[in-house]
Amino acid sequence: MMHPPSETLLAHASGHLDRALRVVLEAHLDHCAACRAEVAAVSAPGGWALGALPRLPAPDALWTKLAARLDSAPAADPIPASVPLPLAARRELVPGGRVRWWRPLLRGARLAVLDRDDERGVALAVAHMPGGRVFPRHRHLGFEHAVVLAGGYEDERGAFVAGDFAIYEPGSEHGPHTLDGDDCWILFRLEGRVRFRGWRGALQRLIA
């Protein structure tokens, strides 16, 4: 299995990942016992420290506010059950809202943006493609962190299947194709944009 770097797991345990990357990482953790064990190891000192603090009285007023919010908070995440997104990843997303799918110029493919941080230029999205299809070759202008939710794809770096975690650095370029067989679902966090090659790139420049 392809894993995230150890420093990403440490950053998660100490709260330093943005929400989009937390969702991607949680999707990987659902598949990976080794990374769950590492998260347990690096978060343990935080748990011990919390337990060593003197206990303040927990205010009744705080409980009252909290209980009221349990009644009003939307419980459901916005992702349809048909998307194979693990529960822990779903629960990182802001509840409520609605997912809008759009279809790129690629037969049978669809994408949905699940979360967006415009200030930092970060988007979290899920892509769904049938097996055996070629995704247009493209270059990343910023980092992409991706995890395969189901099915798989292959590119110049190898084959990626359910649970595999991939990082594409700024300036990297690849032309993935989905593996034959099952539909491929990919969850990815994108910084900045991607530039397509060929006629799609020309069209992209034209409408930009």
């Binding site: 998660h12 709260g15 330093h16 937390r22 998260v39 978060s43 919390l50 822990a88």
Partner: peptide
């Protein structure tokens, strides 16, 4: 409350899990 259904003991005990949630917030 929201994440309790997704808690897995092998990713840390409950105080460690709580610490990570608090740090993220």
């Amino acid at each position: 409350w929201r994440k309790a259904p997704s808690y897995r003991p092998d990713r840390g005990d409950v105080p460690a899990w709580l610490y990570t949630i608090a740090r993220n917030k």
